[in-house]
Simulated assay, not measured.
Amino acid sequence: MASIDLDKVLDSAWADKSLPEILAAPVAALKGVSDRDGELLEEAFGVKTVADLANLKYARWAQALAALNTAK
């Protein structure tokens, strides 16, 4: 399993939290995602948490398409 540098993907306030805490965190815990972005994700897709975003079917579909493209 690949490792991830949490300092690169999380706002500093979340970097020392446990994985369950991060998954339950608002999407604004992700570096580069603003509170307003989080509001828009909730409004458009019902996404409230990092886990919700990870499980968003549209994000999963896009990842699958990208993976198919790199498998060429």
Rank of each mutant, 00 (worst) to 15 (best):
M1D: 14
A2M: 05
A2G: 13
A2V: 03
S3K: 06
S3M: 15
S3E: 09
S3V: 15
S3Y: 03
S3N: 12
I4P: 00
D5F: 06
L6H: 13
L6I: 08
L6G: 03
L6W: 13
L6R: 08
D7V: 04
K8T: 13
K8E: 11
K8L: 15
V9H: 02
V9K: 08
V9Y: 00
V9E: 02
D11H: 06
A13V: 14
A13D: 09
W14I: 00
W14T: 04
W14C: 12
A15N: 09
A15W: 01
A15I: 08
A15G: 04
K17P: 00
K17W: 07
S18N: 12
P20C: 07
P20R: 02
P20N: 01
P20E: 12
E21T: 04
I22H: 00
L23D: 00
L23Q: 03
L23S: 00
A24D: 03
A25K: 02
A25E: 06
A25T: 02
A25M: 05
P26M: 11
V27K: 00
V27Q: 01
V27T: 06
A28M: 06
A29V: 08
A29W: 00
L30R: 12
L30C: 07
L30Q: 10
L30D: 01
K31D: 14
K31C: 10
K31M: 10
G32I: 03
G32Q: 10
G32W: 06
G32S: 00
G32M: 13
V33A: 05
S34V: 12
S34M: 15
S34N: 11
S34K: 04
D35Q: 15
D37Q: 09
D37T: 15
G38P: 01
G38E: 01
G38N: 01
G38Y: 07
E39G: 04
E39L: 12
L40Q: 11
L40G: 12
L40D: 11
L41H: 11
L41E: 12
L41S: 05
E42Y: 00
E42L: 03
E43G: 03
E43Q: 11
E43S: 12
A44R: 14
A44T: 15
A44M: 07
F45Y: 11
F45Q: 05
F45H: 05
K48V: 02
K48E: 14
T49W: 01
T49M: 02
V50L: 04
V50Y: 01
V50W: 01
V50P: 01
D52L: 10
D52V: 10
D52K: 03
L53R: 05
L53A: 15
L53E: 08
L53M: 15
N55S: 09
L56T: 06
L56E: 08
K57I: 15
K57L: 07
K57V: 11
Y58R: 05
A59K: 14
A59P: 01
A59Q: 02
R60E: 07
W61D: 15
W61V: 14
W61S: 06
W61M: 06
W61A: 10
A62P: 01
Q63D: 11
Q63M: 10
A64C: 10
A64T: 13
A66R: 07
A66W: 05
A66P: 02
A66V: 05
A66H: 04
A67E: 13
L68V: 07
N69A: 08
N69I: 09
T70G: 05
T70D: 12
T70K: 07
T70V: 14
A71W: 07
A71P: 04
K72W: 03
